[in-house]
């Protein structure tokens, strides 16, 4: 079975937010909300500066606290690609998952359920890429099966220096940032 993840090349990313805009239209994310976002970190002193740009979203963790803490089973790991999803019908809007996510990846949809990135499972199911990956003008994102050592994403993670967000949280995030 597949285990989906992403490698994002921070040396190419320009933080243009196309990933955010594409996600919003693809998934009808309501005004005022987004499922992905850009973080820019600047370190050093002028002129010796360094900027790290990260396109961030749900990490679809191997060890997802949002699933463990969900009292109804609405938050679950889907059998397809081990994508972390929310069953809107089962969600009672208790916000435990929102609080549990160390990445701030979840928000309460105005319709009353917890919402977040789905890795565009409806597209992936049809053989398409997630909207953010497909739109990226810098082609900095690679999506695929981390359990397949031959996949491009696996080869990038194996071959390139990389980091993940909040490794100490013990969540096993599946978005890898290439340096």
């Amino acid at each position: 079975m597949a285990r989906f993840g992403m490698a994002i090349d921070t040396t190419k990313c320009v933080g243009c937010m196309d990933c955010i805009v594409a996600c919003k239209t693809e998934n009808d994310v309501p005004d005022g909300y987004c499922r992905d976002w850009i973080a820019k970190r600047v370190e050093g002193r002028m002129p010796d500066l360094r900027m790290t740009i990260t396109s961030e979203r749900c990490n679809h963790c191997d060890n997802p606290p949002c699933v463990t803490c969900c009292p109804t089973g609405a938050s679950h790991v889907h059998v397809y690609g081990k994508i972390v999803l929310v069953d809107h019908g089962k969600c009672i809007g208790c916000k435990a998952c929102v609080a549990s996510c160390p990445y701030g990846a979840r928000f309460m949809h105005p319709d009353g359920y917890a919402d977040k990135c789905t890795f565009c499972i409806h597209r992936v199911d049809k053989g398409q890429l997630p909207a953010c990956v497909e739109v990226c003008p810098t082609r900095c994102m690679t999506f695929g099966d981390l359990d397949d050592p031959q996949s491009e994403v696996s080869r990038l993670v194996a071959g390139r220096k990389h980091f993940v967000l909040k490794p100490d949280a013990g969540t096993g995030p599946r978005i890898f940032y290439l340096e």
Partner: peptide, 20 residues
Amino acid sequence: GAASLAGLSPRRLGATAAAS
């Protein structure tokens, strides 16, 4: 603009995924 994910076997989705 679909790039295909060769080698992945798609499965029917349950009611959970917000398929368009």
